[in-house]
Design a protein around this nucleic acid. Sequence first.
DNA 1: GCTTATTTAGACAGGTCGGTCTAGCGTCAT
DNA 2: ATGACGCTAGACCGACCTGTCTAAATAAGC
Lengths: 201, 201
Amino acid sequence: MTRPELRRRTAKQRLLQAADDLFYTEGIHTVGIDRVIAHAGVAKGSLYYSFTGKDELVHEYLTHRHGKWAERVTAGIEAHTDPRARILAVYDVLGSLFAQPDYRGCAFMNATAEAAPDSVEAHAATTFRAWVHTLFLDLATHTDAGDPNQLAETLVLLYDGAVATAQMDKTPEAARTARRTAELILDNVGISHIEAVGRAL
Amino acid sequence: MTRPELRRRTAKQRLLQAADDLFYTEGIHTVGIDRVIAHAGVAKGSLYYSFTGKDELVHEYLTHRHGKWAERVTAGIEAHTDPRARILAVYDVLGSLFAQPDYRGCAFMNATAEAAPDSVEAHAATTFRAWVHTLFLDLATHTDAGDPNQLAETLVLLYDGAVATAQMDKTPEAARTARRTAELILDNVGISHIEAVGRAL
DNA sequence: GCTTATTTAGACAGGTCGGTCTAGCGTCAT
DNA sequence: ATGACGCTAGACCGACCTGTCTAAATAAGC
C-alpha cells in the first residue's frame, strides 16, 4: 500500500491539480491536454492511463470543484445556529471566495457558457445548480418567512448576482452588497411589516 | 449605387447575422469560421474581404449585441417618467428577454467566461459593463435614496443575478424576483424607515 | 525475485482551426 | 468597354487539437 501523503503525488493527482488550475483560469475549451500534461509535469500516456479522455478529466475537475465549494459553504453555515445568521453566512463565504486573487467567477457558470447542451459540463452544472437550490431552500424553510420557496428564489438570485458581478467587475464587495440586501429581505418578509415598524420606532 | 434595402442582403450583413446566431447560441470558441460562412451561405473569401479576421467579426458581433440591448432597455425606461418606475422597467425588459426561447444568457458574460484577459471579448465586455453601471447610476441619482452609488450597486447586482439565474436554471421568472426585490429596496432606502412605517400603519 | 502496476518519452494519425491565395464571374458607374 | 468592386469556389498552409501506440524505465506488492 502506497502512502500518498508521504510520497510524491501520483500522476492522476497532479493531472487533476493542473486541470483545476488551467481549466478554471483559462477555460476548458481554451486549454488543450498538452497544456495540462506540461503543467502537471507528466507524460501524455499517464493522462490516458488515469482517465478515459479529456471529458472524464473535465468531469472530475468540476466534481471536485463542487465538492470543495460545498464543504466550504456548509462549514461557514454550521458555525452559526440562528437561522438568519446561517443564511447570511453563505454571503460571507462568498466574500472570502471573491477576495482570492485568482477568482475568476463560478466554474459552473463559465463551463456552461462554453458548453454544448449535452456535454459533461452541462450535466455537472445541472447537479451543481440542484445543490444550490436545495441549500437555500433548506435554509429558508428554517425561517419564519411566509413562503420559503419565494425566499429561496430571492436568495439564489442574490447569490448568483454576487458571483456574476464580482467576476465581471472584479469587485469583491459584491458579496457585502448581496448580504446587505439579504438582511433587508429577511427583516421585511421574515417578520410582518407591523412588527418591523414597531422595532423601527 | 446599390440599394441595400431592396437587393439581397450583402455578404457582410449575412456574415454578421450568422455570427450573431452561432456565437450566441454555441459560444465563440466553439464555432469556427467554416461554420459561420456555411450558415451565412457565403464564400470564405467574403469573410476576409469584409473583415480582417475572426477577431473583427467577434468584435462587431458583440458591438451590435450591445447596441441592440441598449436600445431595448432605454426604450423600456423612457416609457415611464417616474424615477421608481424607470428603474423597475429595466427588470421588465429583462423579463421579456428571458422569455425568448433562444435565450442563453448575457452574451458578454458568456464571452468573458471563454475569453483571454486581453482579448477582443474582454474589451467589449468592459465597455458593456461601464454602460450597465452608468445606466443604473443615472437611474439611482434621480431618486431620493440616500446613497445613489450604493443603490446602483445593488440594482446592478439584482440585474446580474436575474441574468445568471435565468440562464443557469432556464427560469424566466428570475426577472420578476429581481423586480420584486428592487421594489422592496426602493421602499426601504428611498424613503426613511419612519415614513414607510407611517404608510404601513 | 518475479510480477504487476504505474509512468515515461515521443512518434504518429486524423481532424479542425484561422488564414492565404488564385482564378474567375457578374454588376455597376463612368 | 473598361475598370473597380463585391463575391464565389476551392485548393492550400501551418498550427493545434484529441487520441493511439510502442518500447522502455521505474516502482510496488507478494
